[in-house]
Design a protein around this nucleic acid. Sequence first.
DNA 1: CAAGATTGAACTATCAATCTTC
DNA 2: GAAGATTGATAGTTCAATCTTG
Lengths: 174, 174
Amino acid sequence: MSTAEDRRAGARHLPRWLGPDERATWLALAGVLEMLPGALDGQLQRDAGLTFFEYMVLAMLSEQPDRTLRMSQLAAVTNGSLSRLSHVATRLEKQGYLRRVASAQDRRATDAVLTGDGWDKVVATAPGHVEWVRTLVIDPLSPAQQSQLRTIGERILSAIDPRGNRLPVGFPAP
Amino acid sequence: MSTAEDRRAGARHLPRWLGPDERATWLALAGVLEMLPGALDGQLQRDAGLTFFEYMVLAMLSEQPDRTLRMSQLAAVTNGSLSRLSHVATRLEKQGYLRRVASAQDRRATDAVLTGDGWDKVVATAPGHVEWVRTLVIDPLSPAQQSQLRTIGERILSAIDPRGNRLPVGFPAP
DNA sequence: CAAGATTGAACTATCAATCTTC
DNA sequence: GAAGATTGATAGTTCAATCTTG
């Protein structure tokens, strides 16, 4: 048996609408989703001519002992698709910040390697970027809130991708 | 007096690097920033042929008593730029979901009005979208965490835009 | 057939310039 | 001159198709 609302909405179950508190939570997060990427891209674009995703690619490579990562692993740690990474790698390669070399072990695979110029770029860019991240995200939050945000973020990520191919790689500390 | 690190980085102050906890917090949030928009867009694109931003535009209009909002106000409540909204409004207008009419009071202004088709589109789309939002962000969190996320999100938004032109408008409950 | 990766086309967003009205 | 809004060009992302190797 179905209700009038079911048929109107084409839903198989009565939709569980968000309550006032849930709605406020969601709108706050949605606001962050719309605003923060632009704020991050803006600083990096002005100061370094990089997008946030491009910076993350270079930064994640700079964390590796040999400054090298398989394309598929690099995509995982930057939370991007392989296709997106491939396009970005083409751009970064043209700018001389990384190069791609065929893997010796698995001949399907490609390794991305940070060049000397790429390393210098990260070293030059990281301080301003980290300052900006502090200004927008870290400093406005108490240590308790930072801890809460970490847990909350990890839960949401698990809901999006239960497999969770996110590797424990680091943030640049050159 | 400046340190070697200052000169190397071109920084005027010693960069305050993120500590391990801060770094984990930031990486968790950065992961959400990269993954969640795609997950939201994916559901809406498949089920309704809409982007998340397009859905928000229609949903915010559907909240208004007269289903009408000034373009600049609509941009504010959807956390988008006026330029972005203008392009999106052109697309939505072509699809018949909204129309734009010159304001009577201020002849510089334009009012966006949700059409009957636009209303129907929101009614048909909202249940599936709300279910997906529940699955990804509400249900994985305890009520306490939801409350924390709201406060945290609002703090970050204040850091990005201290003026905070965000209006108290609602979520669709058609 | 699955995994790793790349490519081109279509789409979306951003930026600067522009126009009109207050 | 500033506010409200639009436009065109540029740049970046996504999607599906493709290719090669395990």
